[in-house]
């Protein structure tokens, strides 16, 4: 592979890894902070992707919208609609315990997918939406534009990371961990458990919507296939478990390393004889499945385990109050 090709392979890799990093951070807020088992990541991702695509794409007869709004407006709208969807889902099933929440969230994600496939007037069905713009379109041409988009994605990753870290250290995050680790105790000291869970779920869902929007802008095209639960929901869960749930750095490391495994195996399997190459994606799926089992049995706390912040005493204050 020539150096330029390698560079652009790396750029493409990092763009997708960045999008997955946002999904991982979002899931970390829901699962790592709040202990909420969301198995419908693909649903919120899809809502965000379609919102931003419909608002920013060129006008078309085949689907709703095409308002050619700025990309940033699309992304913010994606966060809002995905967050609202999350609010509705949470309102219904936040009181459900782990396994039941998993079932309910998959069910809702599947219903959303059915709507996307069947409601042609809204989404152009399986034919999808084309002509989705990228931010700063026209500034750079061709493959160089990818580098610009890479920077854009990772700026957003950085913002999301800082926000998530702030949330984790805040009193809000502390209460959330209390709810996660001992619901009854948190309730006993007067915390409104359901409302904390609802907030967590909405924040996570909104971030998933942002990731969905970014992927739609990256590919400039969006069809229901992009919201395949296997590629979104499963992979993100493996990433977070491998990286370390409860740790935001871990979430990003998990996204990078699992996506690296995924992309590198693609290079290897593409060099296999043709009859194997067509089945290469199944080998990768198998590897991811086995990796998940390995992590669950041997490295349950992930590459970077959760580290709760120490309790910081304000010493001067302590002295004055003696």
């Amino acid at each position: 592979m020539d150096p330029v090709g390698l560079l652009f392979f790396l750029v493409g890799f990092l763009i997708m890894a960045g999008i997955y990093a946002i999904l991982c951070l979002a899931l970390n807020v829901q699962w790592g902070y709040g202990g909420l088992f969301n198995a419908g990541i693909a649903g919120f991702f899809a809502v965000g992707a379609y919102t931003s695509a419909l608002l920013t794409a060129a006008p078309a007869q085949t689907h709703l919208g095409g308002y050619e709004l700025p990309v940033l407006v699309g992304i913010i709208a994606a966060a809002v609609t995905a967050g609202l969807t999350g609010w509705a889902v949470a309102k219904i099933c936040i009181r459900l315990k782990s396994d039941y929440l998993a079932m309910a969230s998959i069910g809702i994600a599947e219903i959303l997918r059915m709507v996307i496939v069947n409601e042609d007037w809204l989404t152009n069905g399986s034919l999808g939406i084309t002509n989705i713009p990228r931010p700063f379109d026209g500034l750079l041409q061709g493959r160089e534009a990818d580098i610009l988009f890479l920077a854009f994605v990772w700026v957003i990753v950085a913002i999301v990371y800082l926000v998530c870290n702030r949330l984790y250290d805040s009193p809000w995050g502390r209460t959330l961990r209390a709810v996660r680790d001992n619901e009854d105790a948190a309730r006993a000291v007067g915390k409104d458990v359901d409302s904390f869970r609802l907030q967590t779920f909405v924040i996570g869902a909104a971030l998933m919507g942002v990731a969905g929007a970014l992927s739609a802008h990256y590919f400039r095209f969006l069809s229901p296939e992009a919201t395949e639960p296997l590629l979104i929901t499963f992979l993100v869960w493996v990433m977070l478990m491998a990286g370390g749930s409860g740790n935001n750095k871990g979430a990003i490391v998990g996204a990078l390393s699992v996506w690296a495994i995924w992309s590198l195996t693609e290079i290897v399997t593409n060099r296999l004889p043709a009859e194997f190459a067509t089945r290469s994606s199944y080998i990768r799926m198998l590897l991811i499945g086995l990796l998940l089992q390995f992590v669950l049995q041997k490295y349950r706390s992930g590459l970077l385990p959760e580290r709760s912040p120490g309790i910081a005493f304000d010493k001067d204050k302590d002295k004055t109050h003696g």
Binding site: G289, L290, L292, Q293, L296
Partner: peptide, 13 residues
């Protein structure tokens, strides 16, 4: 439960 998701993936692949 998470492991069973992984097993589903392993079976299918």
């Amino acid at each position: 439960v998470i492991a069973s998701f992984g097993v589903a993936l392993i079976f299918r692949s």
